[in-house]
Write a protein that binds this DNA or RNA. Structure first.
Lengths: 202, 202, 202, 202
DNA sequence: GATGAATGAGAGTTCATTCAT
DNA sequence: TATGAATGAACTCTCATTCAT
C-alpha cells in the first residue's frame, strides 16, 4: 500500500471519531506510519484530505447501489424492497466509520455532501436522478405503491435503513440490552423488509 | 435572562454547529454577550458546559414525551401512531439545534447519551422503560402489531421520525428541489403515520 | 509601557533585520518580554502587525516633514534646501531601523507603502500633494530652480538624503575607511546642501 | 542552457522578490524547470546559491564599469559625468532584479556585499580602489570639482543614479502619475547629468 | 460577578534538506 | 544527473484556561 493510500485509510479512521474539527493531523500521520509533512505533500491541507475522504465514501456508496441492481428503469418495487435494504444496511454496518463520517457531515455540513453527490451525478451517466424520480412516480401511477411523493418515499427508505445503526444505543440503554452485532443486523434487515413491503406496497 | 442562561442558550447554538470539538468558547461568550471568563466561572470548563447542555436537551425531550400522553400502560397502538409521530417530529423540527447536538452525540459519543438517559430514568418515576418494553410486547401478544421485537419497533418509529429532518438535504440535492419547511414537515407527518399504520398495525 | 507598545517596538527591531519574511514572531515576543499569543491577541496576525509598523513609520516621517516648516506655499527653495536635508537626514540617521524597513519595503513591496502614503494624504489636510507639485512648478516658472520636472526634483532631493545612509558600506569598503557616525552625518549634510544649492538653484 | 544556468537565472528572479529569507527553493526549482534536489546537488545549500548569485551580480556590474571607460587615471570629471551616469542608470534599469537584490543586501547584510566587493578588488588588477580615491582627490586639488571628500563625491553620484529607480513609486503615488519607463529613464539621465555638472564641476 | 490581559500547550502548515532509486 | 518521496525542525496561529483587578 502506498503512503497516499495509508494516509487516506488513517484519515477515515481519525475523521470518524470527532468529525473534522476533532480530527488531528498528527494522529493521522502516526496511524498511517508516515511523516506528518507527507499529508501536506500529497493533499495540501487537512481540509482537502477531508474532501477526498468524503468523495471516496460517496463513491463507494454509489458502487454499492450500482452493484445491487442499480436503479434501472425496469426495476419493480417488490424486487427493490427485497434487495436494496439488505445491501444498504450491510454496507453501512460493515463500514461504520463511513457511516459516522457521512452522518456527522449530514448534520453539520450538508453543503459538502451536496457537492460530492452532485459531482457523482455529473460524472456517472448510469445513475440519473431524473430517472429515479420518474421511476418512483411511475410506481405510484401504476398503482404499485401508496406513497405519491418521491422525496418521502426516498426518505422513508433510507431512514429505516441507516438511522437504526446509529441509534441502536438508545433502545439498548432503555431496554437494558446488549445486542450481538450480526444478530442485530439480520433482525434489522427482516424488520425493514416487512415494514417497507407492508407499509408501502399496494 | 441571567448570564448563566444566556451562556447556555449560546452554547446550544455553538455546539450545534461543529459538535463539541468544533465549538469555540470564544464564540459562545460573544454570542451570549458575556465575558469569556464568566463561562469558566459558572461552568468550570467547556466540557462541563457541554454536559449541562446535553442534560437540558434530554430533559426537554422527555418533557415532550410526557406531555404528549406519556407512555402510559393503557395506550393502544392506533392512538400512539396517531399522536406520537406528530409531537416527536414537531419537537425536533422546532428544535433543529437540539437535533443536531443529539445526532452528533449519538454518532460519536453514545456513551455520553446513555449516561444522560439513565440519569433521567433513575429520577423520573413516571417513565419506566420496563413498562414501555412490556407495552410493546403486549401489543404484539394481543395481535395488534406485526413487529414482535420491541427494539426494532422502537428503532423503526424513531428513525422515520428523526432522520428525515436531518437527511432532507439528500433528496433535495438528488431531485433538485428546494422544499418549503412547513409544507415539508406536514407532508412528513402524513407519510410517517401512513407508513406506520399500514406497516405495523395488524 | 503597555504590552502593545512593547510589541510594536520589538517588531520594528525584528522587521528591520531580514524584512517581513525574515522576521520571527517568536523573536518579537521574546524581545518584547511578552507571551507570543499576545501578538495575535492584539494584532491578529504577523502581517497586520507589519502593516501597523509601516503606518507608524510613515506617520512619524510625515511628522518630521510638518515640523520642519512643512511644505507651505510661501516656502522658497533656498530656505527649503537649507532646512529640509538636515531634518530628513537626521530623522533617518537617528532611526536606522525605520530606514531599513522603509527601504526594503520600497524595493520589494512598493504597493504596501503606496497604500500607507495614500492613507496619510487622505487624512492630513495640511500636506496636499497637489500643493507640493504646484510649488515645485512655480519655483521653476519663477526662475528659481533649473529642474522643470517635479518628479525629478523630488527624486534628486530624497535620493542624496536617504541612499547614502544605506550605501555607506560601499565607499567604506572601496576606500578602506571606517567612518565615525556623527562626523559622517555632519559631512553628509554639508555635502548635500552644497550639491542641491549649486546644482538646482538658479 | 544547462540546468545549473537555469537554476541561477531562476534564483535571481526569486531572490529579487522577498530577499533571501523570502525566497523559496521550491519556487526556484519550478521556475528553472528542474528537480528541487538538483539545486542541492549543484550548490549544496540555499545560502551557497545565494552567494553565487551575489557574486555574479557584482561581477557583471564591474564588467559594465570597465566597459564604460573604466576608471582610468587619465579620466577627467567632465567626461566622467557625461558617460558614467548613463551607463550606470541603464545597467540597473535594464537589470531591475539585480538592483533589488543588491539594494536589499545593502540594507540588511552589508557585510556580505563588502566581502564580495573585496573579493573582486583582490582579483582584478585593473580596478584599484586606491586609484579611484586618488583620482577624486586630484580632481579636487586640480580645482576641477567642488567636493573635497571622495567618499561623499562617490555617494552623491551613485545615490542619484541608483535610488530613483527604486524610489520611483513614491512620487508616482504622491503626484498620482504613471510614468512610462523608457521616457522616465531618459529624463532621469538628463536630470542627473545636469545636477552633477552644475553641482560638482567648478 | 465581571473584565481585559495573559498563558502554555498544541494545532496546522512550511521549508530546507536528504534519501533511495 | 535526475526524480519523487521522505524528514524534522521551525513557523504562524489557536484555544481552553487562568490571573489580577
Amino acid at each position: 500500500m502506498t503512503s497516499k493510500e495509508k494516509i487516506i485509510e488513517a484519515a477515515v479512521h481519525e475523521f470518524s471519531k470527532g468529525g473534522y474539527p476533532g480530527a488531528r493531523v498528527d494522529n493521522i500521520a502516526v496511524k498511517a506510519g508516515v511523516n506528518k509533512a507527507m499529508i501536506f505533500y500529497y493533499f495540501g491541507s487537512k481540509e482537502e484530505l477531508y474532501k477526498i475522504v468524503i468523495k471516496k465514501i460517496v463513491g463507494e456508496l454509489f458502487e454499492v447501489i450500482k452493484e445491487s441492481g442499480g436503479l434501472s428503469t425496469n426495476l419493480n418495487p417488490e424486487v427493490f424492497f427485497e434487495t436494496f435494504p439488505e445491501n444498504y444496511i450491510r454496507f453501512f454496518s460493515d463500514n461504520r466509520e463511513y457511516l459516522k463520517i457521512i452522518g456527522t457531515e449530514l448534520i453539520q455540513n450538508p453543503e459538502n455532501l451536496k457537492r460530492a453527490l452532485q459531482g457523482f451525478f455529473n460524472s456517472e451517466t448510469m445513475l440519473l436522478p431524473k430517472n429515479l424520480r420518474k421511476l418512483f412516480e411511475e410506481w405510484y401511477e401504476d398503482g404499485l405503491i401508496t406513497e405519491p411523493e418521491p422525496v418521502h418515499l426516498f426518505l422513508n427508505i433510507i431512514s429505516i435503513c441507516i438511522f437504526p445503526i446509529i441509534a441502536r444505543a438508545i433502545p439498548e440503554t432503555i431496554f437494558n440490552l446488549d445486542l450481538e452485532n450480526e444478530k442485530f443486523i439480520r433482525e434489522r434487515i427482516v424488520s425493514v423488509k416487512n415494514l417497507l413491503k407492508r407499509g408501502i406496497l399496494k
